[in-house]
Design a protein around this nucleic acid. Sequence first.
DNA 1: ATTAATTTCGGTTTTGTCGAATAAATAGTT
DNA 2: AACTATTTATTCGACAAAACCGAAATTAAT
Lengths: 110, 110
Amino acid sequence: MKGTNIGELEEVILLIVANLFDNAYGIEIKKEVEEKCNRTITISTVHNVLQRLQEKNFLESRYSDPTPERGGKRKLLFRVTEAGQGALENSREMRESLWKTIPKIAFDRS
Amino acid sequence: MKGTNIGELEEVILLIVANLFDNAYGIEIKKEVEEKCNRTITISTVHNVLQRLQEKNFLESRYSDPTPERGGKRKLLFRVTEAGQGALENSREMRESLWKTIPKIAFDRS
DNA sequence: ATTAATTTCGGTTTTGTCGAATAAATAGTT
DNA sequence: AACTATTTATTCGACAAAACCGAAATTAAT
């Protein structure tokens, strides 16, 4: 991959960020990935991917204000960029077009 | 990933193998990936992924007879296994469900 | 100080990638 | 028939990028 492509986990995290809308930050994203995708993932992995996605300009981020709870330090909030949205739509369309042309017999087992 | 997960390229190659039905072998797969996904890829990459997919039991293979053309040596033909089909369906459903719940506003830009 | 929520750092394994080597078949040449 | 190009294919060995984790650092509230 030449830096412009999008990996499997990158794609789901992009999708999760879009879903989380204005509460998309590390820990919340980790929770959603685990729930929605039925898989475990560490917070370090999430942040690692988030950073790569930002370097590729598929995500942008800003810091929130700290919340008034114990340990409530400021959060790094993410949002999908226009480029990110484009990448998401491209891979969706590409895969759907492949699904459409799979011959019926392909999945028959004898 | 503990060997049971499926990468981005692994997924498209699985899809292409299903599409190619009974002519799914290295070079043909390479051509299809390049056409359908609008990206370049070497034959070594294709074979490498094919092999991993087989180790994961998402693909099975058999040798064809040689074809009667110049250099027409036997081909290694691939077919998606039941497990492979399952993996494909799972990731499709997972992504579609994420798409469905993205709030309308998420992709609005101000 | 201590505790809690969050992100950052350093490193390992798995996936994605390629160039070059090898194998097997046909066509042409001697 | 035996050899040697040429063509279609797959295998090998190596490296880069993506996926992954444990532990350290940071920041706010108690």
